[in-house]
Simulated assay, not measured.
Amino acid sequence: MTITEKTVELNVTRTIIEKMRRTNQMNAYAVGASQGQEKEFGFDVLATDGTWLGEFIQYKRLYVNGAKHRWNLNRTTYRDQHTMLCALEALGFPVYYGFPKFDSETTLRQWTPPSLWRQVWWVRPSVIPVPAPIDEHHHVIYDTATGVWTVHSEDRLEFDPGDTDFSSVEKRLLDMNTETHSLKRFKDEYRKLMTKRWDAISSVPDRTRRTNIHSLQSYMRNAAKGRGIIVFQP
């Protein structure tokens, strides 16, 4: 059976939390989208006293065609998912694409806990040279025969994703601090980005914005597809 992004998110996130708790003695839990609070923030963010930190992961589904492993980008209504991820990363938050190496429930069962996090390529959005126009459909391909990474739209561009092992993600998480990476700041900045982005997309005049709030909420829910947040307390 083919796999969904939600299945990838649930299983990989669980193993990350278990690893961080076991290896680094960090209190951690996952935050997933809820029907209520996602209307306000695009995902479920709990109240925090400022001592909690957040990591942002955009999970993707793998499509396999021989040696070609493909993950699709910007499969949302406004095709601006990559733009938002890069904006969050530019603010200093740890943001990653989670590109799984498994494409079905059968292969998933081979890598069930405790080491499922090893079966994912962890790629920062900023290292992918998505060509203009950025807010369109694109896809990333990893050629398992040659070890070459490429991003595609109309043209094909090679790129170096850097360190894609979870150890680089783990190091980044351990280097986080509550002043710059607090969950409260993350929530505030994310809300600002989404509102600014929606204003640019919709061009809704200020006097009518209130009557169009449901459109903003729908946009935020759509933009949150396949995203996971892991919250840590050092």
Rank of each mutant, 00 (worst) to 15 (best):
E158A: 14
D163H: 10
W71R: 04
M84E: 00
T48G: 08
H214G: 08
L116H: 07
T211S: 13
S202L: 03
Y96W: 11
T48S: 14
D188P: 12
E38C: 10
E189T: 05
A33E: 08
E158C: 14
M84V: 03
P114M: 04
D143T: 14
K60F: 05
P131S: 07
E40V: 06
Q119M: 03
H82L: 08
T4E: 06
G36L: 09
F99P: 13
W52S: 11
A47H: 01
D160C: 05
W149F: 14
S218E: 08
F56E: 03
R109M: 09
T211Q: 05
F166K: 01
L85S: 04
V204S: 13
T178K: 09
T15H: 11
I17K: 10
P161N: 05
P133C: 06
A224Y: 00
R79M: 08
L157K: 15
I57L: 09
G50C: 10
L183Y: 01
V31M: 13
E40S: 12
L46Q: 06
D44M: 14
D49E: 11
T48W: 05
F41T: 09
T77Y: 07
L91N: 09
Q217P: 06
I16A: 09
S115T: 10
P125K: 00
Q35W: 04
K196F: 09
E154M: 12
L10T: 07
V231W: 07
V45Y: 11
G42D: 02
E5D: 04
L85M: 13
R156M: 11
A30R: 13
R109Y: 03
E55G: 15
F102I: 11
T180M: 13
D103V: 11
N72E: 04
T76G: 10
S153D: 11
L85W: 02
E158D: 12
M1R: 15
T112S: 14
Q217I: 01
F232H: 13
S215P: 00
D135L: 07
F99M: 15
T150N: 14
G228P: 10
V148R: 10
A28M: 14
F93K: 04
Q233G: 11
V123D: 00
T77I: 09
V95K: 07
R197G: 00
R227M: 09
N24M: 06
L174C: 07
V123H: 04
E154N: 12
T83I: 02
I141E: 15
N222V: 06
T51W: 02
A30S: 15
S104E: 00
V127H: 01
I57H: 02
S34L: 05
V148D: 00
H69I: 01
E55R: 13
V12E: 03
S203F: 11
N24C: 08
T107V: 08
R118Y: 06
L62E: 07
S167M: 14
A87H: 03
A223I: 02
I16E: 06
